[in-house]
């Protein structure tokens, strides 16, 4: 593995892990349910995306022959489609349960 690839991999791995950590930090730190929702849906998704890209590059470089390893894209794609859906459902459940929020809650219609 060339030093440039190794540097790129290290950067991607660290950035991914940092975003994952920041997402969970937001979950632990914020005060109401609706603001907590933002950390995991955005930061964590991008963090795992970075890690999967790193994994894809790693197995493409070190794998036998010159075969590309692209199946990590599948997990990334899946997470990018499902994370907003679960966030939307969770927000809906929170509104349904009338959870307290820092922002003025919306009126019912």
């Amino acid at each position: 593995m060339s030093p440039a690839v190794e540097a790129l991999l290290s950067f991607l791995v660290l950035a991914g892990a940092a975003f994952t950590f920041i997402g969970s930090l937001g979950l632990a730190r914020f005060r109401d349910f609706y603001t907590r929702l933002h950390g995991p849906t955005k930061a964590t998704t991008l963090g795992v995306g970075c890690l999967l890209v790193a994994s894809s590059i790693y197995f493409s470089v070190t794998g036998e022959g010159d075969s590309l390893s692209l199946h990590e894209i599948l997990v990334t794609l899946f997470l990018f489609i499902t994370a907003p859906v679960s966030a939307h459902l969770l927000a809906k459940a929170g509104l349904h349960r009338r959870l307290p929020s820092v922002a003025p809650p919306p009126r019912d219609d």
């Binding site: 994952t20 997402g23 969970s24 979950l27 349910f33 907590r36 929702l37 950390g39 995991p40 964590t44 998704t45 795992v48 997470l79 994370a83 679960s86 969770l90 459940a93 929170g94 349960r97 959870l99």
Partner: peptide, 15 residues
């Protein structure tokens, strides 16, 4: 609240 716990579980599986 219950939704907070579900959100935590959601984050745990992504972690």
């Amino acid at each position: 609240h219950a939704p907070d716990r579900i959100l935590a579980l959601d984050t745990l599986y992504i972690n």
